[in-house]
């Protein structure tokens, strides 16, 4: 978000850029596929250039459209005895099917994946901690 580009006609997405995006999205593209995607994306983004002409209106603060709950103060009782705004369900939704039935690899109550390459030893160490 440091640099900002204007959407403009004639924008072209390079194959290198497509591959960078594909890596971010963890999608593997063969060379031919990447080429086609670059071409499709360039053509789609060209149509998006019109967005540059929107007279700036205050954009919404969140992704949620103006429905219910978005404007009401959170966690406060409202009239008519309805639950507090934003109040969720009081109990977790139970699982009707054990996890071992949906997990691709399940051992001793754990999901299992191939060992992470970057792990160097410290317990609980993560590439990206929250």
């Amino acid at each position: 978000m440091n640099k900002s580009y204007e959407p403009e006609p004639g924008v072209t997405v390079t194959i290198e850029e497509i591959q960078r995006i594909a890596t971010l999205a963890r999608v593997r593209l063969e060379q031919g596929e990447a080429k086609r995607m670059a071409r499709d994306m360039s053509s789609i983004l060209e149509h998006m250039a019109v967005l540059g002409g929107v007279a700036p209106e205050p954009a919404p603060t969140s992704g949620v459209p103006q429905g219910e709950g978005s404007a009401r103060p959170f966690g406060e009782a409202s009239d008519e005895g309805v639950p507090r705004a934003g109040e969720g369900a009081a109990t977790p939704d139970p699982l009707e099917r054990p996890l071992e039935r949906i997990a691709p690899d399940w051992r001793d109550g754990l999901f299992v994946v191939p060992r992470l390459p970057s792990v160097a030893g410290a317990p609980g160490e993560r590439e990206s901690s929250p």
Binding site: P7, L51, V54, G63
Partner: peptide
């Protein structure tokens, strides 16, 4: 997925996702 990842990625967010939200409000 690629289009959306592109629109949210650093450097393009304001031009695409930001503008699109403004257009949506309009």
């Amino acid at each position: 997925i690629l289009l959306g990842t592109y629109a949210l990625s650093a450097g393009y967010y304001d031009a695409y996702y930001g503008r699109a939200q403004e257009a949506r409000a309009a």
